[in-house]
């Protein structure tokens, strides 16, 4: 059994047996959950299917959040991505951005999503994976397998640090999602287990210290757009790792640092809506618009 308390252990075990991290994790989790590898695979396949449904749902032009503060971002970005001019980030990345916005918007609109690892950060992994599936011709089975790698990295982060914004700030939610997605992307592109660890480390380092400051306490502003920054960091971290750029600080130490930084964040910047963007004059005005009107 794997304890999921260090990334280096995952890398060593996979490299020792010359298999992918996803294969190692599928086998281990099947044993731990007393299920067959096929049952586990099919469970994960269903999660990928729901992710694709959330993308479709969130790309609708009339998509609107419960509060009315946000909505339609996915549609706008997708129109722009497929429009006449070439977007700055290129078509593929712009479509990936649209998908991350779509899923995060679907969540805000009370649609069905897969928490990955949380509801607030649910757009990052689908934004990355659906793009490789739809635009880069990757096979569904490889993508579903890569989700086991993501999950394993997430378990290590959960054990060593935290995945909750209320505990560790946004770095724990979107930061963890970006790290998990970076590892999956790296594996899908043929990277080695240690390159997956590098991608994870780089992604965490690049979101270090990100605070959780939701306007009105709602999972909308800035959460929806922060899914996009998480996605961009995931792609760039994976590409750096695949280019052979390693992280000077090992992934496990990055996760430890993230925990330390999370603990040091004041309470006002940990999902309490008592600081950051939430307490800007406009942030407060938006909050009042949603909650004061009804009293």
């Amino acid at each position: 059994m794997i304890k999921y308390d260090s990334i280096s252990q995952l890398v060593e075990k996979a490299e020792h047996r010359n298999i992918k991290i996803s294969e190692l994790v599928l086998e281990d989790q099947a044993a731990a959950m007393e299920m067959t590898t096929l049952q586990l695979y099919e469970k994960m396949q269903l999660n990928f299917e729901i992710m694709r449904q959330s993308v479709t749902e969130g790309l609708k032009p009339d998509q609107k959040s419960m509060s009315g503060l946000t909505g339609g971002e996915g549609y706008k970005m997708s129109e722009y991505a497929c429009g006449e001019g070439e977007p700055l980030c290129g078509r593929q990345m712009s479509k990936a951005i649209a998908r991350a916005l779509a899923v995060a918007g679907c969540n805000a609109a009370m649609g069905k999503i897969v928490a990955a690892p949380t509801a607030g950060s649910c757009g990052i992994l689908p934004g990355c994976l659906v793009t490789l599936y739809e635009d880069r011709g990757f096979q569904e089975k490889d993508i579903v397998m890569s989700m086991f790698t993501s999950g394993a990295f997430g378990m290590v982060i959960a054990n060593k640090a935290s995945l909750a914004g209320a505990e560790g700030g946004c770095q724990a939610e979107c930061g963890s999602a970006a790290a998990m997605a970076a590892a999956a992307l790296t594996e899908l592109m043929g990277g080695t287990p240690s390159q997956c660890a590098d991608a994870c480390a780089i992604a965490i380092a690049n979101q270090m210290g990100l605070v959780c400051d939701p306007v009105g306490g709602l999972v909308e502003i800035p959460c929806i757009k922060r899914n996009v920054s998480g996605l961009m960091i995931a792609f760039s971290a994976a590409d750096m790792a695949l280019a052979g750029i390693s992280s000077e600080i090992p992934a496990d130490e990055c996760i430890d640092a993230m925990r330390e930084v999370g603990d040091a964040l004041p309470r006002t910047l940990r999902e309490t809506a008592a600081g950051g963007l939430a307490t800007t004059p406009t942030g407060k005005k938006l909050r009042d618009k949603v909650f004061k009107g009804e009293d």
């Binding site: 609109a109 992994l125 999972v219």
Partner: peptide, 12 residues
């Protein structure tokens, strides 16, 4: 692994 990639839920 399904506590991390999951649960499937209605947002937000």
């Amino acid at each position: 692994v399904f506590d991390i990639i999951g649960p499937v839920m209605i947002g937000p």
